[in-house]
Design a protein around this nucleic acid. Structure first.
Lengths: 252, 252
DNA sequence: CCTTGCGGTTGACGCAGCGTCAACCTCTAC
DNA sequence: GTAGAGGTTGACGCTGCGTCAACCGCAAGG
């Protein structure tokens, strides 16, 4: 007994378009063709469709479904791999949600801060802009002339130092110590020194950055996710910022 | 001072293609055009780009970003709505993961079961759908009519009972007893009874949930962090799940 | 002067999984 | 004879770009 495309569609709860699509991509060819190209499906095809839909509902991509069904391939394995992807996705989502939540509260708090700033006549925006632009210039100087001038040996040293610094910050932030503690301040000093090593950093002639530059940069670590992630996300970056700001106020 | 497209791209860590795309969809027109149609970007454009990327990293669709930036529209509001979508997605994912996990274990437990499933794939699909959809319906029924209908007094009672149950689970999980032990099974019975108190629960006419529903719910406690935290994180939730599954197999 | 190379431009296809027309065919019932 | 149900094959649309392809302009080097 064979069925028409609409029959099968209703039976399985999908559209006939879907069935045609599956035919087109070779996932589910009809069991036969009637006059005028009419597709019809026998029981085997219907069973195949059931399996397809089962796997599809589990979120497996159609190409994977095809492989699993055609090559008698390891179904459980495919699902496990898929599960890993789903979990990764779940992770990503969770982090993103946290991120958005933080941003929302920051904005809502920030509106108050903004209002205050306006009253003070202090232009928050301009200050931010300056730092941003400065950073662009720095990246330029750094990557272009200076970096190449270092040579491979020194480049590796530099990279290692950078990585160490980031990891040290990460550990410090995790450990729950205070940003103004001696430990954290020592790290801040290292950070300032490290920055001073980059030509183009304002103040680097005197071997350490200017106060304004350091504070601006610190704020950016928090505000810009691409930096924040080097320091363990917003939380880590917040710690770094607090430590750097404290350091700048005291020593620069 | 204006920059070329490559400058800006490197500065912001995106491809020049992306910038052209943003121009094309009107999200970020360059500040000016040089000879030969060369795009160049001033500081304002760069700042706009920063904001775009920030929101993009939060997962906001480009069209929404455009609206927010152009119409000075309610940024926090947009993010909140986005947050709702993210949470829905998280829900979906959690359920899907639970589903895939069940399927994988089912497959690995025995090809026998699987063979049966294949022959009547309908059952499986329907069953799964039922659990998923039912749960949605439950949350609805629960929060809307029933809950309000209880009145403040009964509501407090209910909350207390819910909290007690959660705490009891927490203690049981901590104590290291076996999920199949009498103690744990007694808790599972309480849990089932508690569930039966929520109208809309499949099987609640008979004062306790159906087996399928309980098992599905139990899996979700593990898969969905928002549930898991009510039961002491993933570990606690795992304990709860194992106890509930054992209970369901024996008594429902 | 010619070539190379870099950096820029504008299309246009591709991906995943169909929804949604559009234009046309065929069979049956009235 | 004609309407209607059910079928067919394209082909575009959606998201956010990556990835050619084909072409242009300008500066340095042989």
């Amino acid at each position: 007994m064979t069925r028409s495309i609409q029959d099968v569609a209703r039976l399985a709860g999908v559209s006939s378009r879907t069935l045609r699509h599956y035919d087109q991509i070779g996932l589910l060819p009809p069991s036969g063709n009637g006059p005028g190209g009419l597709r019809h499906y026998d029981a085997a095809a219907v069973r195949r469709l059931q399996r397809i839909l089962l796997l599809r509902d589990l979120g497996l991509p159609l190409t994977d479904i095809g492989r699993v069904l055609d090559e008698q391939a390891d179904e459980a394995g495919a699902l496990r791999r898929h599960l890993d992807q789903l979990r990764d996705e779940q992770d990503r989502l969770a982090r993103q949600i946290a991120s958005v939540e933080r941003t929302v509260t920051a904005i809502e708090k920030g509106e108050q801060l903004m209002a205050e700033d306006m009253l003070d006549g202090f232009d928050h925006t301009q200050y931010e802009q300056e730092v941003t632009e400065r950073w662009g210039a720095d990246a330029y100087a750094k990557s272009d002339a200076w970096w190449r001038g270092l040579g491979p040996e020194k480049q590796k040293e530099w990279q290692a130092r950078t990585r160490e610094l980031g990891e040290a910050w990460g550990r410090a932030a995790q450990s729950g110590i205070d940003p103004t503690s001696d430990e954290a301040q020592a790290l801040a000093a290292r950070h300032a020194e490290w920055l001073g090593g980059i030509p183009g950093t304002p103040g680097s002639e005197r071997d350490r950055p200017t106060k304004e530059y350091l504070v601006g940069l610190a704020e950016m670590y928090v505000a810009d996710p691409r930096f924040a992630k080097n320091y363990g996300g917003t939380e880590g970056a917040t710690f770094v910022r607090d430590a750097l700001v404290a350091y700048a106020e005291r020593n620069l």
